[in-house]
Design a protein around this nucleic acid. Structure first.
Lengths: 137, 137
DNA sequence: TTTTATTGCGGGTATATACATACAAAATGT
DNA sequence: ACATTTTGTATGTATATACCCGCAATAAAA
């Protein structure tokens, strides 16, 4: 049976499969790969607003707001008042930082298994391609 | 600001962006790219069961079952009895087939815009890489 | 200064997605 | 024949995701 030629379909399928791979690795740390990514970005950016974090992650603001709420409920991040009355900042809690530290080896292992499968050349190719696709529309 | 090195995060972000690109193109045809993909697979495979369709698309069976229900409600596909009492077959309706035909030019345009951006070499590279990733775990 | 536009966010609604569990039908083993 | 296992789905629960709309606070314009 011929595979689909649709770039989008193939991209979505790959994203699902790879997400399952990472989710499996992160199992036991109380977070999935989407949450791991959110927490990482929180560590990388310094107390971003909902909007800027969403922008940085290529997510809709409302989506990010809801994802943030889940992690806030888990105590891994918290919201603080910004300079502006309407502006709220997202920041990592100590627990969130610990969670990231604890999960790091598992993430590294998952990443490494994938890189071993691909090899260095394809890994670089893939990252390059994904970067180009990131700004789609 | 340095981008993430996480393959999964980048893959997920690209999938979101590209999905938005295709969803925008399909706007007005009553289906999104995930549904377009499902209908295409339905046309490609002949009256698959829920399980085999899920397998073919790399989706969890329960997920596919729910996605199918949405399209059934829209009249684009219907369920029929299989040889087995527990086995149900999914098949495209006439409306579903018409919907696919109507949406095809929009899908082609979206695909073409993306390919123009990438160029033939990278397009082939990308499909190759995604295919390799498809079987991740 | 009052009006208007912009900005930042939350909520409503709908779909996509997965895992665990439950359940019924069919196949298999004794 | 009866018990066990396997198979095919559906349901419960939870998160991820997006679009639209509305609200409040701020900034810009008149």
């Amino acid at each position: 049976m011929l595979p689909t030629q649709c770039l989008c379909t193939n991209l979505r399928r790959a994203a699902r499969g790879v997400s399952r791979h990472y989710d499996g690795a992160l199992d036991g740390f109380g977070i999935n790969v989407a949450q791991y990514s959110l927490l990482c970005n929180l560590k990388r950016l310094d107390q971003p607003s909902i909007s800027s974090l969403a922008e940085a992650m290529g997510l809709d603001r409302s989506t990010l707001g809801r994802n943030v709420r889940v992690l806030e409920g888990a105590g891994l991040l918290k919201m603080t008042e910004g300079a502006d009355q309407r502006n709220r900042l997202v920041c990592l809690t100590e627990a969130g930082d610990q969670c990231l530290k604890a999960a790091l080896p598992a993430w590294e292992a998952a990443q490494q298994r994938l890189m071993d499968r691909l090899g260095e050349t394809k890994r670089a190719q893939l990252l390059q391609l994904l970067d180009e696709l990131a700004g789609t529309d």
